[in-house]
Design a binder for these strands. Structure first.
Lengths: 165, 165
DNA sequence: CGCCATTTAGTTGCGCACAACTAAATTGCG
DNA sequence: CGCAATTTAGTTGTGCGCAACTAAATGGCG
């Protein structure tokens, strides 16, 4: 009320709007996660484990480093996750012979077979969303754009000035 | 290849598209979280703690139950989180006199004062996104719609049939 | 060649999310 | 009233995510 910013939006309203956005994303992410949880229960995979398997199914065999790049995850997250996938019998880890620092991950026969069961998952998810594909695609594109922005701005974005540019 | 579904999208492509959507949401959520992390560093708040404080700033005083409803979080998440907020001196917890089961949470003077500093956070976030407010709003609406769908579909959405309706 | 910076995984610690459970208070029904 | 079902927080255990660190291998430079 008492102050109107250069962006034409009062501080208070801005705080409220912000509440909506950050919260919406947070809630959607968790809701999605929940649906995946039930959809993936039969496969004995968590959602992040499923993401890793998707990457491996597509690329066949990757060093941990590459998996991390595809999924934006570091070794702190991936190492234990991959251990669990290995314990479940879905992947194999081997130190690379030509570079002993690197660890190569690839699906086992069982892990590869799992892909057939996984083919049914996306449809169940799409059914759960009940959204037309077109809108889903738009959402995806918006999210990707947002992520790209946030990533470049992230490293202490403290003093970058204008929001409304 | 060998089978084309009723939804006109082959299984394989569907799996790939799915990869994109779920991953996009996951990545965006984490990217957002990262930006908030840096923006909230000065306030000594994590992102979920910030959400709780937003709710408390808006409503003044709430039982744990209500906070959980606003944020879709259960006591398993909230109890330790609120303990930490209490340890930080930002909130107070008191068992309700008229219903001893309930615990009432309200900001301390320090917690209330924190709001002033927090007013700057949304603008920093908006700056980091670099998106026009209109597009942000659209994104928010899409996400809310998605969450609503997912929530109703969630309880074992196994055999709900058609995605493309 | 020898040494230091870099790269790559892994480990530790902390916080969130969620399922499954416990504990205590309250409600309601016979 | 008395007891079972419900409501409300809290606890425990597991897994993800990230920061900060360690350990080992590699690459490059004097």
């Amino acid at each position: 009320m008492e102050k109107t910013t250069l962006t034409t939006v009062p501080d208070e309203d801005f705080l409220r709007l912000d509440n909506q956005i950050c919260f919406s994303l947070h809630a959607a992410s968790r809701a999605f996660n929940g649906v995946y949880r039930t959809a993936l229960k039969d496969l004995n995979l968590t959602y992040p484990q499923y993401l890793v398997m998707l990457v491996l199914w597509e690329h066949g065999e990757l060093p941990v480093k590459r998996i991390g790049e595809y999924l934006r995850l570091d070794s702190g997250t991936l190492s234990p996750l991959l251990k669990r996938l290995e314990a479940a019998g879905y992947v194999e880890r081997r130190r690379s012979p030509e570079d002993e620092r690197s660890v190569t991950v690839r699906p086992t026969a069982e892990g590869a077979a799992l892909r057939e069961q996984a083919l049914d998952v996306p449809r169940r998810i799409a059914a759960a969303t009940g959204m037309p594909l077109e809108r889903i695609r738009r959402l995806r594109d918006d999210l990707n754009a947002l992520t790209a922005r946030l990533d470049t701005a992230d490293p202490d974005a403290a003093d970058c000035a204008a929001a409304d540019g």
